[in-house]
């Protein structure tokens, strides 16, 4: 038996044994009840939001929503085809930037970083992750919109991509560290160069976990609005050009929700339902991507 340290608070616990057991039992039960209630209340808003979203959204959702363009006020039957396409393009652009940089950084941190540099980068990565998304938006505006003089999807995609980097870096590093060192040794002993060992053995083995992390990151940025307001800006027309303003689901929801028109409110609900479904589906897929192909027989 290793004797645990006795802390001051534990001595306090001894003293309390003087109190009547019945009262202490009662306190225990009450607090247990309080915890149940707190947990219940904390999940209540979620239930509220989901119920309302499904009810309002489903009634406004039809085939037009996915296939039609937005219509002017007063005309029924508009959709958000351009916003859906825009979200996919923006997320794709972000992934094209965030995934390689994040995976590369994660590989470096897990495999070859000098200790001080690695912990500095890790810390700053956490800090970057905590930056408000609106700050990312004005940064992208300052660097990519202001010089060219017009809004562009590219600026929005890059803002989202920068937000992805710390998320992908973190999971990549964690997943790479889960790969047994013996696999790396085995590959080196077969005459693999370090880079080949890293890419074709270690990274490949960690891939399911990294895919999960990448999906989680995508799910998070897919719903972002703030970085897009003055970068991608929004567009009432069909445009897939990265050089032009582009619509996105979150932008369209924001615009419609804050408008005074009943018909647009309905579309905003439908858009929110689709956006949330998209985010949840990605998150669920991420959950079920197999993480356990590290094989039997070692570690």
């Amino acid at each position: 038996m290793n004797a645990p340290r006795t802390t001051g608070s534990q001595r306090a616990a001894i003293e309390r044994t003087g109190r009547t057991l019945g009262r202490r039992r009662l306190t225990n039960s009450i607090m247990l009840g309080v915890m149940y209630v707190a947990a219940g209340l904390a999940t209540l808003p979620l239930v509220f939001i989901l119920v309302h979203l499904v009810r309002e959204g489903a009634s406004a959702l039809d085939a037009n929503f996915f296939t039609k363009m937005p219509r002017p006020v007063g005309e029924a039957g508009g959709g958000m085809a351009n916003a859906i396409a825009g979200t996919l393009v923006l997320v794709g652009t972000a992934a094209a930037i965030g995934l390689p940089l994040g995976i590369g950084a994660g590989l470096y941190l897990a495999e070859q970083g000098s200790r001080r540099l690695a912990s500095t980068v890790r810390f700053l990565s956490d800090i970057l992750n905590g930056l408000p998304s609106i700050v990312m938006g004005i940064f992208a505006w300052q660097v990519l919109v202001r010089p060219v003089g017009h809004f562009s999807a590219l600026a929005g995609g890059i803002a989202l991509g920068v937000m992805m980097i710390p998320l992908v870096t973190r999971t990549t590093e964690e997943m790479i560290r889960l790969v047994p060192a013996s696999l790396r040794e085995a590959a080196l002993a077969l005459g693999y160069a370090r880079w080949r060992t890293s890419l074709s053995i270690v990274l490949r083995t960690a891939m399911p976990g990294i895919v999960t992390g990448a999906l989680v990151a995508v799910a998070r940025i897919a719903g972002e609005t703030a970085p897009l307001i003055f970068t991608a800006f929004g567009n009432q027309f069909w445009s897939l050009s990265l050089d032009q303003p582009m619509s996105a689901l979150p932008l369209q929801i924001y615009a419609y929700a804050t408008s005074p028109f009943e018909e647009w409110h309905r579309l905003a609900w439908a858009g929110a339902l689709v956006l949330l479904a998209l985010v949840l589906i990605i998150s669920l897929v991420a959950r079920f991507v197999t993480r356990s192909r590290f094989g039997g027989g070692h570690d």
Partner: peptide, 20 residues
């Protein structure tokens, strides 16, 4: 050293098949 390792095989304590 890569060329050295290609000419000299090595097997470790625990089996290390590449899981993928």
């Amino acid at each position: 050293p890569i060329e050295v390792r290609r000419r000299i095989g090595m097997v470790f304590q625990r089996p290390t098949p590449f899981p993928t």
